[in-house]
Design a protein around this nucleic acid. Structure first.
Lengths: 258, 258
DNA sequence: CGTTCGATTTCGTGATGCGAAACAATAAAG
DNA sequence: CTTTATTGTTTCGCATCACGAAATCGAACG
């Protein structure tokens, strides 16, 4: 387990449970939240009422929604560390030059988290994956990060989530995974060959600090049909790798501020 | 007051207080948070410990920070309503065409909130204002929104925050403000002539739903020295106005989904 | 080794969060 | 218009538990 609180505060747990419910449902009425979370109506009501009073929740008609207060908290979280501020411009560049969807991610609580994803022209609605979690063993960014992280990171992830199989290509064997990480280390490049979702491929390169430890990774992702041959293994790979290099350099250059 | 909870939950209040503290400090040690919030060490410790266990907080050394969990919650909040998903692409276009800083904002809990701000080349670090609050009476976006909102919105804002004076140009008289809103309604354009910060000007245009009620506003902002004459009152004004129109149209066209 | 500073834990108690159920409000149905 | 159903809101009593003072632990420093 990641962390076990000695004296967990009960009402905090229910409050957070309610937030989780609101996130999943994208908002809802008291009854909905109560059903979703298994918490009594009156309790849900009191918590939501308190949250609203403090400006964290908005009520539209009889529906409750997460408020924009969380947007602010999220931005503060995202701007801890240099990864986002230095990475975003480069990610945008890669997206412009290649025309592909570009991602920036890091690790938190033993899982991969998207810090940023470029906007796609096509899927306008809900394209935002920022803040979403992903597995480390079957994503390009995840493997790029693992290759330059202490074993403890993989240990924690394996402990909590296991090496779940999603497709035929998913690497579910620890030894095999570690072997593949070795080549990632050599080439500073990690691939995802439909290991998480059939038809989806990625290339990632790690973003490193001065001690060659991964702060995160940058990747492009797209359809397997398009991500093949030289375009995939040279053009895109190089684009991602050089972007990662620029970001790493910019970060280490400004070291000390962090 | 915006909303008064009948049975506010005490531990929720302290938890939220701690989050506020973390936001202000950008993270810190137990003692720091305790000092900042006036809550006892052990209480702070228990709350943070609980939050961490649930993945909302990260601990780096002996420092606690807001976790990326909030990023996700913030994104959910931001994607409620069509404003962000339809507005962002247009805001980016305006930013590209004019080269100026472009903002997208809305109203929540009686205050203006930035939903999105385009990245500026110059100020890389901490340029993110997303989720930040701003006053309605002295900002271009605020006035654009007020002009197309029921009086209750201005009432609530005035009640809670008052028409604070920030510069010589700030409109602090309700009647005068309402008069200026009349011309905003006519021209579908609102200006900020250094009313909030000396040297800073903005132009905004409201984003309207099918009943001509403001969902938010889009604006560009920049130095007063540059924002003058035809460039300010024609070029930028038109850019913002037409972008607002496009967004409004796209939203009403897809009406019913919301 | 001792000192200092802060994190963590212990612990007793008064406050309070919880759930069942009553009540109100609203909408749908007949 | 009345009835019925559904859900939000409030009440209330009690076992629980969040709180704070102080003790303990642990690390960094000289």
């Amino acid at each position: 387990m990641t962390h076990k609180a000695k004296n967990p505060i009960n009402s905090d747990l229910t409050l957070l449970e309610i937030l989780n419910g609101l996130e999943e449902l994208g908002g809802g009425r008291i009854q909905d939240i109560a059903d979703e979370t298994g918490i009594t109506k009156s309790t849900v009501h009191n918590h939501l009422s308190t949250l609203r009073q403090q400006g964290f929740i908005v009520k539209d008609g009889d529906r409750y929604y997460l408020g924009l207060r969380f947007l602010r908290l999220g931005e503060v979280a995202r701007n801890r560390g240099p990864l986002f501020s230095f990475g975003r411009p480069e990610a945008d560049k890669v997206a412009n030059e290649t025309g592909e969807l570009t991602n920036l991610s890091t690790v938190e609580h033993g899982r991969g988290v998207y810090l940023y994803r470029t906007q796609s022209e096509h899927e306008v609605r809900f394209s935002t994956a920022a803040g979403e979690y992903h597995d480390l063993h079957c994503s390009a960014t995840g493997k790029a990060i693992l290759a330059f992280s202490p074993d403890s990171v993989l240990d924690e992830f394996e402990d909590v989530h296991g090496l779940t199989r999603y497709t035929q290509n998913t690497i579910t064997d620890r030894a095999e995974l570690e072997e593949s990480l070795e080549t990632v280390r050599e080439r500073q490049l990690a691939l995802d060959l439909e290991e998480y979702e059939k038809g989806l491929r990625c290339v990632a390169s790690p973003i490193l600090d001065k001690d060659d430890r991964a702060l995160g990774a940058i990747s492009v992702s797209g359809p397997a049909m398009k991500f093949t041959g030289e375009y995939y293994r040279e053009t895109l790979a190089e684009a991602v790798k050089s972007a990662a290099n620029v970001i790493s350099l910019n970060i280490t250059r400004t070291e000390g501020t962090y």
